[in-house]
Simulated assay, not measured.
Amino acid sequence: MDKTTTQAQQATPAPTERTVQQKFLRIMELAMQLNSTPTKKAETGDKPTVFVDFSGRTSELIVSVYSRGWGDDRHYDARLQCDINGNASDLWRTKNYAGDPCAFLTVDQMIKCLEDLVAKWCDA
C-alpha cells in the first residue's frame, strides 16, 4: 500500500450507521414518490415499479427496480442489497434471477437511479 492510498483511505471516513439509515430513508421516500399509487401494468403502462424490503432480522435493505414496470413476465433490472453499515452483498452477480443482465448498485447509485426516475416520471 502506497502513501497516496493510505491518505485517500483516511480522507474517506467509513459511513456511520446514522448516515446509512438516512440514505435508507431517502430510498424509501423516493420509492414512495414514484409509486404513490398501485402500478398495475394495464393502468400505468411502462411506469417504473420499485420494491423496497427491509429485514429487521439482518438489518438489510433490498431494493429492486423494474424500470419498465412490474409484471409476471418481467424481472428487475437494477438491485441494491446491503446491510445497515452500508456493506453491499451480491455485487458479484451480474444477472437477475431470470438470468437477464442486471445492475447491482451501491446505496448512492440507487439513490441516483431513483432520483432520475422520479425526475422523469413525477416532475413532468
Rank of each mutant, 00 (worst) to 15 (best):
K3P: 00
K3H: 02
T4Y: 05
T5E: 10
Q7T: 08
A8W: 06
Q9F: 04
Q10T: 02
Q10W: 09
T12Y: 00
T12R: 12
P13M: 08
P13K: 15
A14Q: 14
E17P: 01
R18K: 15
R18L: 14
T19L: 14
T19E: 15
T19I: 01
T19P: 00
Q22V: 07
K23V: 03
F24K: 06
L25C: 06
L25K: 14
R26I: 03
R26C: 06
M28P: 00
A31K: 11
A31I: 04
M32C: 09
M32A: 11
L34C: 02
N35G: 14
S36E: 06
T37Q: 15
P38C: 11
P38H: 10
T39I: 04
T39M: 12
K40L: 13
K40V: 13
A42F: 06
E43P: 00
E43L: 15
T44A: 07
G45I: 14
G45E: 11
K47V: 10
P48F: 07
P48C: 06
T49N: 09
F51G: 02
F51Q: 06
V52S: 02
D53F: 15
F54A: 01
F54H: 13
F54P: 01
S55A: 10
G56L: 12
R57T: 09
R57W: 03
R57M: 11
S59P: 00
S59K: 14
E60H: 10
V63G: 01
V63P: 07
S64P: 00
S64D: 12
V65F: 10
S67N: 12
S67I: 04
R68G: 01
R68Q: 14
G69K: 04
G71K: 14
G71S: 14
G71I: 02
R74S: 09
Y76H: 09
A78E: 08
A78L: 07
A78N: 03
A78S: 15
R79V: 05
L80K: 09
C82Q: 05
C82A: 15
C82T: 00
I84H: 09
I84F: 06
N85E: 06
G86E: 03
N87K: 15
A88F: 03
A88Y: 01
A88I: 07
S89A: 10
S89F: 14
D90K: 15
W92S: 12
W92D: 10
R93Q: 12
T94S: 11
K95M: 02
N96P: 07
A98T: 00
A98W: 00
G99D: 01
D100F: 05
D100C: 03
D100L: 13
C102A: 13
C102M: 11
A103H: 06
A103S: 14
F104S: 09
L105E: 05
L105Y: 04
T106P: 04
V107G: 01
D108A: 04
D108L: 08
Q109G: 12
Q109I: 10
Q109V: 00
Q109R: 05
M110T: 12
M110Q: 05
K112M: 05
C113S: 05
C113G: 00
L114V: 07
E115A: 01
D116I: 06
D116C: 04
D116R: 10
V118R: 06
V118Q: 06
K120A: 08
W121T: 07
W121S: 09
A124M: 09
